[in-house]
Simulated assay, not measured.
Amino acid sequence: MIAGLLPAAVTAYDTFTDASGDVLFPEERAVVARAVDKRRREFTTVRDLARTAMAELGVSPVPLLPDRRGAPQWPDGLVGSMTHCDGYRAAALARAADVHAIGIDAEPNEPLPDGVLEAVTLPAERTRITALAAAYPHVAWDRLVFSLKETIFKAWYPRTRYELDFAEADVTPVPEADSSGTFGFALTVAPDGPDTRWLTATRGRWTTGDGILVTALAVPRTALPAQRRG
């Protein structure tokens, strides 16, 4: 599912089953030593996928440790993103010489839990969600908007180290078919925050299938570099 959402410069792998055996480095194993089995399986499988992509890019396998926000720390010269939800795992990588940033996310194609929608969306987004749900009821649009924001944040944060709030991203999903489409977005950050144009100039893509929503954004090197205002 994931590869079809990303440009040719990005190497992506996904799976509906977990990796067999212990494929972690000792440093990674320590990160999830006290985690529940579900967390260990997710953590292990996405790293197995990521190292498969690294091998295709000619990069030797190394530990992929999370930073303080949980974002994977990639080897020099690579950008990437990983995601997992119940029944699905994915990883996408590219050479930094070709791509500025990548964000991917996967979520169940199910409505958000009660009370979450208001916490993660803007009023304008809720208006769009209502209209889209009437036209395309097979897509959980509230969950899709949440996933789109997660994808944007994953692409944005490693390059800027600026932590976005949900209210700072206004996303507009655009269906192109019954089960897929694109999305655009605007970011509103503090006046002295990073320039947003390098990211918002790019449109992302989304798709649904097998009960899963998958969203992706890859920013080519032709985009504007991140700069600070002021």
Results as ranks from 00 to 15, higher is better:
3 A>I: 03
4 G>N: 04
6 L>C: 02
8 A>S: 11
9 A>V: 03
11 T>G: 03
13 Y>G: 09
17 T>H: 13
20 S>R: 06
20 S>G: 10
21 G>A: 08
21 G>E: 04
22 D>R: 06
27 E>R: 07
28 E>F: 03
28 E>P: 05
34 R>P: 05
34 R>D: 14
35 A>K: 01
35 A>D: 03
38 K>C: 05
39 R>Y: 00
41 R>T: 10
41 R>D: 02
47 R>Y: 00
48 D>L: 02
51 R>C: 08
52 T>D: 15
56 E>T: 04
59 V>C: 10
59 V>N: 10
62 V>K: 01
63 P>D: 02
66 P>V: 01
70 G>S: 05
70 G>M: 04
72 P>D: 04
78 L>Y: 07
78 L>R: 12
83 T>S: 12
87 G>F: 00
87 G>I: 00
88 Y>D: 07
89 R>C: 13
91 A>I: 00
92 A>S: 04
92 A>T: 03
92 A>L: 00
92 A>G: 08
94 A>V: 06
94 A>C: 07
97 A>D: 15
98 D>E: 15
99 V>P: 10
104 I>Q: 01
108 P>V: 05
114 D>T: 13
114 D>R: 11
117 L>E: 14
118 E>L: 10
120 V>Q: 06
122 L>E: 14
123 P>M: 02
126 R>M: 06
127 T>F: 05
128 R>Q: 15
131 A>L: 14
140 A>R: 10
141 W>S: 13
142 D>E: 13
144 L>G: 12
145 V>W: 07
151 T>Q: 01
151 T>E: 01
151 T>R: 00
154 K>F: 02
155 A>G: 11
156 W>Y: 14
157 Y>C: 04
159 R>Q: 14
164 L>E: 10
168 E>K: 07
173 P>V: 11
175 P>G: 07
176 E>S: 10
176 E>R: 15
179 S>L: 12
183 F>H: 04
184 G>L: 11
185 F>M: 07
186 A>I: 12
191 P>E: 04
202 T>D: 11
205 R>K: 07
207 T>K: 03
207 T>L: 02
208 T>W: 06
209 G>F: 09
210 D>C: 05
212 I>F: 08
218 A>Y: 15
219 V>T: 12
222 T>E: 13
223 A>I: 02
